[in-house]
Design a protein around this nucleic acid. Sequence first.
RNA 1: GGUCCCGUAGCUCAGUUGGAUAGAGCGGCAGCCUUCUAAGCUGUAGGCCAUUGGUUCGAAUCCAAUCGGGAUCACCA
Length: 544
Amino acid sequence: MLSEYYDDPSFGRKPPIAETIMVEYSSPNTNKPLHLGHLRNNFLGWSIAEILKANGYNVVKTCVVNDRGIHICKSMLAWIKFGNGATPQSTGIKGDHLVGDYYVMFENELRTQAEPIMQQLLKGDSNLLTGEEKIKAQQLWKKLQELPAGGEKGQEINNELRELARYNTPLMREVREMLLKWEEHDPATIELWKKMNGWVYEGFDITYRRIGVDFDKIYYESETYLLGKKYVEEGLKKGIFFRKEDGSIWVDLSKDGLDEKLLLRKDGTSVYITQDLGLIRLKYEDFHPDQSIYVIGDEQNYHMKALKLIAMKLDLPKAAGIYHLGYGMVELPGGKMKSREGTVVDADDLVDEMIIEARKKSAEQGKIEGFTEDELNQLYEVIGLGGLKFFLLKVDPKKRMVFNPEESIDLHGFTATFIQYAYARISSILRKEYPANEKSIIPSEPMPSVIPSEPLLLLEKELILLLEQFTTMIEQSAREHDPSVIANYAFRIAQTFNSFYSKHSVSNAETPGKKQLRLRICLMTSHVIKSAMGLLGIQVPQRM
RNA sequence: GGUCCCGUAGCUCAGUUGGAUAGAGCGGCAGCCUUCUAAGCUGUAGGCCAUUGGUUCGAAUCCAAUCGGGAUCACCA
């Protein structure tokens, strides 16, 4: 094994096969900047795509941007009301953040407007409401009177009342009007929508580039949200779906353990799942994927299960190849992230912080001699960003995880830095042995094939056995859709190498044969580390 | 209430196609830099694998129940 692959940077990867897999991930809304949860999604999606490529698949990375709907209208309305013509240029604020700021302003204003209505409702006075809502509010209020205060049920009703209050504010009325205008292609509304979305995309681009994430194809919901209706008609004809008295169209999934699911509103407009069905077809026409992986939070398990079932019932192409990679929420040590409490960790801020921290810690280490300013900046980027990616990818995607800021910037233990450090040490050895090849670290002349006469030492053997497993790991991580398999593996390699390194010398090996053997082990280890980390989207430095 | 996921060391996590003394990292304690980078290495303490019952020669792993945590069940997306 060693003599065959020691100098093969692509060791572990498989030859291409004629099978296409689409990986959909990231899929942001355009009313808010990216946050910590999105980072887990992005890193996961990107890494899974790489892992599948390493298994020989043809991979198409896609992103479905949710660029339309009431949420973006909220930002637009707040901008009209409070913006005074502010732009990213005039304020110096990154586009996605600027738009996000107006979204927050909208929510604040909404709360202010809803409060007096809520107070009225709580007094049992629902005269501010009309029709069905008035009746509903009265019913809710009566129920509330019968319940003990502070109970869970009471809280629920309270929330429903609050929803009613919010819904009936002038602000919500305005924003709904705006959405209607958008749907009627009102030129001014569309223009503003395009402008503000444009700002968001500029902002997203910067973030994506920075975190090293990209896509082969981007779909916009504004272009796809009307798709899928004809499949509903089709399903209706085939008798898979049914129509209720009010005209809405449903599918009964109770035989499959789910409930009835709405597919088309009574007014004939589509819902989330309708456009998803359309998108399946569109994706198929564009790329003919054999499998389609959706990287979406596990709170959508139910939705994705329903989507797949319906697609199978409709006999959409490759419906059986739909796979939902549902990942758990990222929580903070104090609990969930809540925008209301301002505990949302912004993606851009977090990346900045990680890099600053990398700089600080490097200075503490006192290891910055002999680097140019550019090299240092690049190194901090590699360490900071790598640390963040590794932290989010090292745990099983399916599980909820706790993001501890202090732990995430740690450079010791089960971290990217630990592995990067091992790589830098190997590079240092190889640099010394092959000074002419500092850049490539690959010797220009093949090493003489020396069959070691001495038996392998324990750590040499361990390391070789571990290296041999790389192919298996790549297979396993793809099969389980789990980059943490690779992260764990890379760590074990680095760990074993560090032990080996401190116990046995390479350049001053006991015999020339041993030296050749160890050089090969080193070379191969460095290739495997670089390759494994590459699958996670993490770079490794020659020196650090 | 129905469905689904989770519960392993003080903390964060591996291990779950059943197999030998349950593994890492952090944190604690004790050591190691005149030899290839100490962002490292070595040693040590710390666990009734939520609980109870079952299947089995054998269970952290499979089954059931219970307790605790979470998600979801919208004419929202």
